[in-house]
């Protein structure tokens, strides 16, 4: 039932992108997202789309799979488009009752939609090609300098990896409890909002209880293995930059220079 959510899911296959160091992917995604907000013209977006398409191609993740993840944000996308369409002041194109569509509004709505879509697809490539563990490892190592400012980098990374690890477990648990309650005649789908909210009680109470039980067990298991924070802890698979990672950094840099540079020059 809940297996259809692909946003933030890992897609298992072997590709260059999968093998990249997670730090490269994190930095790349961040730079890519920032770059999207610098663009002022059409050609820059075209370059970004080409870049994105190349990465998708290289990642061996079927495009279909990414689009499936987009379904979750269609609603958000629609709201953004509608608001931008009607609420941007400027030269009026169509007026209907109190609503006016302006030329600027259309431009804004289209840019926002393209931006958001590319943003989501771009960041979903990162999660689709990197296991959550790898991702938090990358984050921990990449943010290590912050330790100088007393930021608890390791603890935050550990919490994140635990949280991520628990998502599938809790999903499965939700699925199980839901099924068990449906088998007892529960109805999660019909009725108005209040009825539906009330129908969630038989699902949420057992879910909370099981989440706490699991958290307790995990804390106990970690203590039994003498876990006491990040100091002096070594990694089984330490992250070391390879040749392909350096090449990837170069590619990202090239993309940034070209896309932003082209935009500036043409304007």
């Amino acid at each position: 039932m809940l297996r259809d959510i692909t946003l933030g899911q890992y897609y298992q296959t072997d590709s260059v992108i999968h093998r990249l160091d997670p730090r490269v992917k994190l930095a790349g995604t961040l730079l890519y997202i920032i770059s999207l907000f610098f663009f002022k013209n059409f050609i820059a977006y075209l370059i970004a789309i080409v870049f994105l398409a190349t990465v998708i191609k290289l990642s061996h993740v079927p495009f279909r799979f990414m689009v499936k993840g987009m379904k979750a944000i269609v609603f958000l996308l629609l709201i953004t488009v509608v608001f931008n369409l009607f609420l941007t002041p400027g030269e009026a194109l169509v007026t209907c009752w109190k609503l006016t569509i302006t030329k600027e509004g259309v431009e804004m709505a289209v840019t926002m939609a393209v931006r958001l879509t590319m943003l989501i697809i771009g960041s979903s490539i990162m999660t689709l090609t990197t296991t959550p563990n790898n991702l938090t490892d990358g984050m921990e190592k990449g943010l290590r300098p912050l330790k100088l400012f007393h930021v608890p980098v390791h603890e935050v990374a550990m919490m994140m990896s635990i949280a991520l690890r628990f998502i599938p477990i809790l999903m499965e648990e939700t699925d199980k409890i839901m099924k068990a309650q449906i088998a007892r005649g529960a109805d999660f789908e019909s009725g108005n909002l209040i009825r539906r909210a009330r129908a969630m009680v038989p699902l949420l109470v057992p879910l909370f209880i099981s989440a706490f039980r699991r958290a307790n067990d995990l804390a106990m298991a970690m203590e039994a293995r003498c876990y006491r924070g990040g100091d002096g802890r070594t990694k089984m698979k330490p992250l070391i930059y390879q040749k392909r990672d350096r090449i990837a950094y170069l590619c990202i840099l090239l993309y940034l220079v070209v896309s932003i540079g082209v935009g500036r020059i043409l304007l």
Binding site: E173, K176, A180, Q181, A183, P202, P206
Partner: peptide, 11 residues
């Protein structure tokens, strides 16, 4: 249908 560990459904 009584699921595995059905006590986890009590609320």
């Amino acid at each position: 249908l009584v699921f595995q560990y059905p006590e986890h459904q009590l609320f």
